[in-house]
Amino acid sequence: MTTDTIPIKKIKEINRDELVAPGTPLCAGCGGLEALRLAQKELGENVLFTNAAGCFTLLSVYPFTPFRGSWLYTSMSSPAAAAQGIRDALDVRMDKRGLDRSEDMQVMVIAGDGSTYDMGLSPTSAAIHRGLDFIYFCYDNEGYGNTGFQLSAASPLGSATQTAPPTRLHPSGTEAGKKDLFSIWAAHHPPYIATVSPREPLDLINKVRKAQALKGPRLFISLAPCPTGWGFDPRQMHLIAKLAVDTGIFPLKEYEGGTVVHTRVPRKRQPVETYLELQKRFRHLFVPEKREDIIAAIQKSVDDYWGPYE
């Protein structure tokens, strides 16, 4: 099954309303906030949020909210379970309590990679398996950013985190590769999965538009370049996001009807170094001496990924 939605082609077609109000105490230059803001522009007002503990805890600080719709805060493990409860409550009220169908809302999970890749994966798996009608939006900054940037299952090979710093015995910092959550989700065969980037607003919005026309579990992973945790100047947020795509490190793709399609294929992939060298979390790969071995391992993992497609 594929969907026929009309994609937007120009920046000026993007909704001018700010559905995530300014004033949130998130970091200046937050990539996750930018991605959420763009997604909301397409989703509109009728959204109920369940928010796992994480950086986005700060979105709503009592008595303030940036959203038009309600916001329910949950533990790191349970936003998908909370989404089920809200979905059920809406359905029951429409079926039995006379709530008009025009007042139905989308239920949307907002969760970071700590929740999504680690603690919340099992309830999310169950929710996808049950075919829960919801949208899942993961802002992936590749670490537990809200608590000082500790290692998560999304932290990439060779990156330094608070709990995986480079040491003499562990020169690469993080030694495992990033968990392939996209494939884990895809193994559940939901209607729609996509990766998105704040740097690609049209691609992001068109994917949200496509998802909105579908029912059932629709899942997003957005790269969320993090000035604080990754160590770069906030003004370079979009440059970092761009290089993540241009180097092939963060593939933009979607899963629909059993097939995966890449929506932005870098014409000539740039070497991963161009992405790594701008970030403090990879600095140990360049000083005091350049770690060609670790950089080569990162490059190889990217080459291996793209091999079948090029």
């Binding site: 004033g23 949130t24 303030f64 909210t65 959203f67 038009r68």
Partner: peptide, 10 residues
């Protein structure tokens, strides 16, 4: 919180 989008007050 009953005022949508009141974060802008901050």
């Amino acid at each position: 919180v009953l005022t949508p989008g009141n974060m802008a007050l901050r």
